[in-house]
Design a protein around this nucleic acid. Structure first.
Lengths: 118, 118
DNA sequence: TACATACTGAACCATATAGTTCAGTGTTTA
DNA sequence: TAAACACTGAACTATATGGTTCAGTATGTA
């Protein structure tokens, strides 16, 4: 089996922190697309779209291939496994914390709140 | 039931894109902590740590409360639900894409690669 | 060959991030 | 009351991001 080493979570979470890029992933989930078609769909210059695709590519979420003058973008094979694992592990952490501390938290909520209106 | 509206995914994914901040979440999963203790643990100035905590707070991942001169940080009640949902939904997208296109992809891999060594 | 298409790269802009130092303010404690 | 502690805010630095325009290069087509 080929190993798909995930680039650090820094890169993928940063890539996912932009709505346009999440939209690109959405779109590539439907069909592969050229830079031009993505730029049209997201109302952006070619150059701007190219940068977004590069961010996704550095994160390993998208792969591209140029054939002739067209660069085709598709979802990267490595997927979102590492990200899902981090999120799930820490989701459990959150939950465990609240089971243990539920009463303390509600007590804190009953007390006066810090910085009522900044 | 109280509704915990998640700040946009932009903010939470951006918050998670930094290793120090993921470490802070890790740490708060073990026990609540003051800014000072976190700053010590991550070898950073108080001011620097305060900024990280603010990023996590804006994303709704951490809540803080100041009592006396100590600001205590803990995991936010809203958890990572919205993020987990986005990731899971799109993980399926990735997989579905590869089931459909597995043969096409392996064909593309057999062809010459674009930009062999940049 | 000439034109259109699809991308690419450099340069620029405004804003954000990750960190710092320094000078406070407010709180505890001796 | 004085000193120590915990935080806060302003200001600064260097670098990244999200976008643009403009000037290419390479490819496809009439």
């Amino acid at each position: 089996m080929v190993q798909y080493v995930s680039p650090p979570l820094d890169l993928s979470f940063a890539a996912l922190s932009d709505a346009t890029r999440r939209g690109i992933i959405d779109q590539l989930g439907r069909e592969d697309a050229s830079i031009t078609s993505l730029a049209d769909k997201f109302q952006m210059t070619l150059t701007g779209m190219k940068k977004h695709v590069q961010v996704l590519e550095r994160a390993g979420l998208v792969v591209t291939q140029k054939v002739g003058r067209v660069r085709t973008c598709k979802l990267g094979k490595r997927g979102l496994k590492a990200e899902a694992e981090w999120i799930e592990a820490h989701r459990k952490l959150f939950e465990a914390r609240f089971e243990a501390l539920d009463d303390i938290i509600s007590e804190l909520n009953r007390e006066g709140r810090d910085e009522p209106a900044s």
